[in-house]
């Protein structure tokens, strides 16, 4: 499934919900069910610090694709993190770098990306793309 196809799948999923409560309940469920990052990666250098909540993220390159695992101390942030991983994990660095991630706006969660929310999510997306750039440059060398 391409990045855009996964985004569309999430958009369809969220369209089933009538109100914000159901959307948040879904996010919370996603957060609860996300596979945790291995404890050995839950270290200071994997920490993306927000003012309010923190995210730990680890990436690996396997057969030319980037795989992400992550965790957060806040469950709603974790739900958002789970969505990001579902969309971006398992794709090539090139695909990740050029992803637009428009689904966030479509499902009405843009405010979680505003700098004032300071939940580490915006920084995490940046870090995911930076990791992708770094992996791509290893190919070029």
């Amino acid at each position: 499934m391409s990045i855009e196809e996964t985004e569309q799948e999430i958009i369809d999923e969220f369209e089933l919900f009538d109100d914000w409560m159901q959307r948040y309940e879904h996010l919370i469920d996603l957060g609860k069910s996300m596979p945790l990052i291995k404890d050995l990666y839950k270290t200071e250098d994997k920490l993306i610090k927000g003012c309010q909540s923190s995210v730990w993220m680890h990436s690996e390159l396997k057969d030319g694709n980037v795989f992400f695992t992550a965790d957060s101390d806040a469950i709603i942030t974790k739900g958002m993190v789970a969505l990001m991983i579902r969309v971006l994990s398992g794709h090539t660095p090139e695909e990740i770098m050029h992803s637009k991630l428009n689904f966030i706006e479509t499902i009405g969660l843009t405010k979680h990306l505003s700098p004032t929310r300071s939940n580490g999510l915006l920084s995490m997306i940046k870090q995911m793309k930076l990791d992708a750039i770094a992996y791509r440059s290893t190919f070029e060398n």
């Binding site: 409560m21 948040y24 919370i28 003012c51 309010q52 909540s53 806040a74 709603i76």
Partner: peptide, 21 residues
């Protein structure tokens, strides 16, 4: 067992402004 950020986010949805952090 709950993170202040999560509580603040839900309260915000209900129109309630508190500070978390």
């Amino acid at each position: 067992g709950l993170h202040p950020f999560d509580i603040g986010t839900i309260l915000d949805q209900l129109g309630i402004a508190v500070r978390t952090g």
